[in-house]
Every structure is written in C-alpha cells, then in structure tokens.
Nucleic acid binder design. Structure first.
Lengths: 218, 218
DNA sequence: ATGGACATGTAATTTGTTACATGATTGC
DNA sequence: GCAATCATGTAACAAATTACATGTCCAT
C-alpha cells in the first residue's frame, strides 16, 4: 500500500490544505466576531494563542494578513477620518470562513505537537554544566511558568461566561492545566537532579530544600 | 556594502552564544562517547531528542554537522575500506566540548519553551467543526501519544543503568511524565468537549464513554 | 531482481525572526 | 516636551523543510 516515492509522479500533496498552520491560526483569530488590526491580533496571540500554539512575530502577522487578503479569505478597510488613528482593520470573508471550516473540520489528522524546550536541552546536557547552575535554571523556569499560569488564568477569566467562546475557553482550560503540569514536572525534575548530582557541600541524608536553599546553613 | 551593524548602541547580545539551539542540540548528540554519522544522529534524535526538543530534518542535520566542523567544534573522518559502507563519521573536538559546556552551563536563561499544538488549534476553532469529528481528532491524538509514551519508555529503559547517562535519563523521565500528562490533559479536554457540545443523538443524562475510558466503574 | 534500510548530499522554496524606518496619539 | 504605546510596514537574513539525485548493501 505504501506508494513509495522512487520514480513516482511529483506533488503528492502533503495535506492538500495549502496554507501553513500559522495562516490558519491568524485567520482563526479573525473568525471571531468583529474586525481587528494586525497590532491587535498580535496582542491577542500573545495573550492566548501562545499558550497552545505560539505567537508569530508582528511582521509575520502583517505578512499573513496580506496573503489572506490576496486569497480572498480576508478583507481590509482603512479607518475613515472619524477615527483618531489611521489603521487598517481586517475581517474574515465568507470564503475565508468556508476555507477555515474545511481545514478545522477536515478529516486530516492534526499532526503531532512539537515541543521545543530549551531548558530540557540544557538538562539533557547536564553532565557538562554546574549542578547548582542547572538547578537555578529550573527555578527560573518554574517562576516564569507560574507567571504564565497567572496570565492564562486571566485570559480564561476574560473568556468566561461568554457562550460563543466555548471552544477558545476549552483551549484555555487545557492551557491552564498544562501549565500547572509544567510546574509539577519541573519540580519533579529538581528532585531527580538532586538525586543524580547532589550539590557540593550537601549532605544527602539532610534532605534539603530543592531550590532556594542554602546548603550550608552556617 | 551592507553594513551589518550601523553603529547602533541598542541593547545588544540576545544570548551572545551565536549558534541556534539546534546546532547545540546536534553538538550535544555528539558529546556522548563515540562517533556517529548524520544518519545515526537523525535516528537518535527521532528516538529521544524529539520528546523534549524536536527532531530536525536529516538535511538540516547534515548542514549543522558541516557548520560545526567549519567552526572546529566537530571533526569527521571517512570510513576506510575495512568498513562495508562508505560513510562519514563525526566526533566532537575539545574545542567543541568547551563551547558546548559554556553554552549549557552559562548563566543565560534558557528561554521559554515553545509549544505548537495543531490539535489545540483545531479545538480552539471548534465552533467551525463538527463535534464528532473533533472528538475523533482528540482520540487519535491520545492514541498517538500513548504510542510515543511507549517509545519514550523504551528509550528510558535503554538509558537505564548507565551512570554516565544520568542527565539524558532525567530528560527522558521528564518526557515520560510529560507524555502521561498529555494523555490526561486530552482526556480532560474530551470531557470539556462533551459538556460544551453534546454530539447529536446523545442523551446528556446517559453519561456515555468519551473515548478510551470508563468513568463509571459499574 | 526487487524493495527496503542505509547513507549523503544539493537546490529550491518557505517560514520566521530581527533590525530598521516612520509617524500619530495619549498621558504625564 | 517627552516617553510610551499604537500602528504599519520593509529589508536582510536565518532557519528549516521538501523535493530531488545518487548510490550501496541486505534480505527475500
């Protein structure tokens, strides 16, 4: 069954959907009621999309918006003189909504999630690093993740109650739980790190505090 | 002449490390005892690196190896006639090890993890999709994640026991726990999805099984 | 002999980032 | 008046993928 490519005809159409996920993400942002500027889109992406699907650079958002408009999936209008600031607002078109629905509801597998975790890369290479330094890095990560958690909970609270937003809400709930898990995972890793290479001057039988600790209490 | 930097005193040095994380990842693969080919590196990346830091395309691995060698961080040798197959094996150099240790142990923050989760993107856009289709997608994700979990556990078992590998081992343990959490998160999301939009023909009071689990023990 | 895994690479293209450039408006 | 935020873009570059091209070795 595996029509392996050796002398096979070209274009085997990877998914048939044409656009990269990022384009659908931007169009998705537009699919909720109202029109918005690229700048607003970026802020929204930072505040919620990034928790489960990264936030593109502002310059890329503008580029995607232009592409979406060229495809007829979005329309734009310049603000008139009644508005204080000159800006360009985008809205999804019917065609865009149809295309997006076809993508979102398509039978095609969503594809595996991709995780790039720089901290884990360093832990993995931990044999080259100072144990204390490594623990400090994990501590920073925990602190940052708790900050993200607060932000995600805020975003969730803002989405709460609105019925139209039930699905973004579900995605945000997933994100909150995921971030909670991220903190727990990092804390467990700290324990593993202690077991693997106790910091110099620490008595293993003393069962010291993992992160903010001073191994020598004198 | 394109002046690469127009005497701008703007706050500088994003990390000061020059190379992208992917280059360090490849060099990291090389930092463990033994020498290996690009092809072997790719397989190893698929089998373990990808659980916490994605697996680059084979062509990119070859490109990174060339860059690493040009920098003096790796050396390569062609297999002699004693070996059946012509290939090029790479090894880390002392300079490479020093540079890698400086990167891994540096005080610089590791930076935030980036997660690109195509399934969540679709759930987030769930108002455009068929509820049943969405649930099916989540089910596929759970099945795939369980498969990954098995692979990660296998990789962990292979690393078990070897003392030199304590840090890769910690990274793998984190990965296993993370995948376990991923399954739980998806199952919880299935419940949320049921609450948001019960599938047509489903009696909400019937408490049907979401996908893999049986919440009612009889 | 055929196909699959091993093995290495190039070319074209796409995707995404950072730096730069510009200017209006708001709040202090 | 000045800084911060709003707002939009371009240019240069870096990162990464896919498609292609080529060939060997091994098992059936």
């Amino acid at each position: 069954m595996t029509a392996r490519r050796t002398t096979s005809p070209r274009h085997e159409v990877p998914s048939g959907d044409g656009l990269p996920p990022t384009a659908w993400a931007v169009l998705g942002l537009l699919s909720f009621p109202g029109e918005r500027t690229g700048y607003e889109l970026k802020k929204w992406a930072d505040a919620s999309l990034r928790f489960f699907y990264w936030s593109p650079a502002i310059s890329q958002i503008y580029a995607e918006l232009r592409r979406l408009e060229a495809l007829g999936y979005a329309s734009s209008r310049r603000s008139g003189p009644e508005e204080p600031r000159a800006k360009r607002s985008y809205a999804i078109t019917d065609e865009g909504r149809t295309a997006l629905a076809a993508w979102a509801g398509g039978a095609a597998d969503a594809g595996p999630p991709v995780l790039k975790h720089p901290l884990l890369l360093r832990v993995w290479l931990g044999h080259l690093a100072d144990p204390g330094q490594l623990r400090a890095l994990v501590g920073e990560h925990i602190a940052r993740t708790r900050g993200d958690l607060k932000e995600a909970r805020d975003a969730l609270a803002r989405a709460e109650g609105t019925e139209e937003w039930s699905h973004p809400h579900i995605a945000l709930r997933w994100s909150v739980r995921r971030l909670e898990s991220e903190v727990e995972l990092a804390e467990a890793m700290l324990t593993d790190l202690d077991a693997a290479g106790p910091p110099p001057g620490t008595d293993p039988s003393a069962a010291g505090q993992p992160v903010g600790d001073s191994p020598t209490p004198g």
